[in-house]
Design a protein around this nucleic acid. Sequence first.
DNA 1: GTTTTTACTAAACACTGTTCAGTAACTTTG
DNA 2: CAAAGTTACTGAACAGTGTTTAGTAAAAAC
Lengths: 190, 190
Amino acid sequence: MRRLILSAAHDIFKEKGYDGLNIRSIAERIEYSPATIYLYYKDKNEIFYALQYEAAAAKRDHLLPALSIEDPWKRLIEFGRLYVDFGLKHPDWYDLLFLTRAPMEHIENQQCWTLGMATHSFFVETVQACVDARFFKSTDTETIAYTLWCHAHGMVSLFVRERMRMYPPEVRAELAKKSFAMIVKMAESL
Amino acid sequence: MRRLILSAAHDIFKEKGYDGLNIRSIAERIEYSPATIYLYYKDKNEIFYALQYEAAAAKRDHLLPALSIEDPWKRLIEFGRLYVDFGLKHPDWYDLLFLTRAPMEHIENQQCWTLGMATHSFFVETVQACVDARFFKSTDTETIAYTLWCHAHGMVSLFVRERMRMYPPEVRAELAKKSFAMIVKMAESL
DNA sequence: GTTTTTACTAAACACTGTTCAGTAACTTTG
DNA sequence: CAAAGTTACTGAACAGTGTTTAGTAAAAAC
């Protein structure tokens, strides 16, 4: 039953986005009363957590191809490229993971957090591998990882939350590509 | 009357944040009925636009000290520093300006947009001045500006939307500082 | 066959944004 | 001055949220 509810929530989220998702629409889709949902999920936040987990899993799957790249520098680049690609292709998922205000209070206890942290750790480890291989002059792995992440996240969130209106729609993706290339260049001389 | 409503909205927003702000709470504070508000503002979005303008003005004021710096490179650095500083000090304003999903549809017509664009133009012009002064090897002003903006915005939004839980609270500001220094270093060799 | 447990829901509550019919006071007009 | 019109405002409602509670019908256990 939990699966049924979550699956319906998933579908509605994909169809109508965040705003179109509400308890009554889920209930209608699974042909149960709204009250029934509360027998299986404490509140709407819990459904959100579960959806965030789906998003985290989708993100992990999207990044998976980078895992198998031997060379740490190439792996880092591909990881970053795929990260941005995921955000641009699945703005709703990205939004849910990194831009939603709502339910962060006890997220640390959730599977979603574990999954997200695993992906993040992989990223940091790749940066560490680059540091170990003397790809950078700097050895401050944490700051390097954070800096690169900020840039990628900044790009995606400006896009997702539509703060790129000063650029015509058709140049936005191109600009993101150029900026990504630029940060790679910058990182090379770090 | 419009001023009265907006001033109340402003206060409530500062006190209770985005979520505590609703029509009835504004009405209560100014001691009018909720319906009255609709005589002066079309809907809640219009009040939002007005608040966004306040936020944009607050941001401009915060960045003002950078304007008078002669040296373009120093000006750019100080501008960036103040930008991040504004975001960390006034997360609610920053949120309203760059992270709120809601009312972006017709924002281009709003004063807020004009004000925000002016600030943004100043930023791009400063980058252009650096390019003209051969501070960078690259001459792609647009991409440089966008890249720097993405990094700053990424830092602030990860902070504002509380996606830095993997770092202990006390290191977050420090990490931001280090990352800012790092992007400056990176930009120097751009 | 009676009792207990399970699975579910209708109806309500409290809270949103928003609208509309109506009212009381002030202004204009004959 | 009285009638008509205009202005400023509101009570009450509507529709849409998340959520709770009392109750019911069916299945399971005894």
